[in-house]
């Protein structure tokens, strides 16, 4: 288990951590207190992943460029 707070984890990190937790818990050889702690951490990690999954907004923007080709801002983009 990493020491990184769950809230700062990337989706991938949270995923890997969750998989570890589930695997350990699945083995069933964890002491009871620890298994409850694991479960708690697992639900946190799952919530983190769910949040990342929910955060699936599509937002497409096109950069507007100045004469020298440097970006000046964005404009909505619709490729159709």
């Amino acid at each position: 288990m990493t020491d990184k707070p769950v809230e700062e984890m990337s989706f991938e990190e949270a995923m890997a951590a969750l998989e570890q937790v589930v695997t350990r818990l699945d083995r069933g050889d964890v002491p009871l207190e620890e298994s409850i702690a694991l479960y708690t951490r697992g639900t946190e990690l799952k919530a983190r992943c769910e949040k990342k999954l929910k955060d699936a907004e599509e937002k497409v923007a096109k950069l507007s460029l100045d004469a020298s080709g440097q970006p000046t801002g964005t404009e909505p983009f619709d490729a159709g």
Binding site: L18, V22, L25, V30, L32, S35, K46, C49
Partner: peptide, 26 residues
């Protein structure tokens, strides 16, 4: 995304199942 969602749900189920199993067994 949907695959990840399914995976995540699966993990959630395993998590709960494993804990329940742990408690049952004990």
């Amino acid at each position: 995304r949907v695959e990840l969602k399914a995976w995540l749900d699966g993990q959630g189920a395993r998590l709960t199942g494993a804990l329940a199993m742990t408690l049952d067994r004990r």
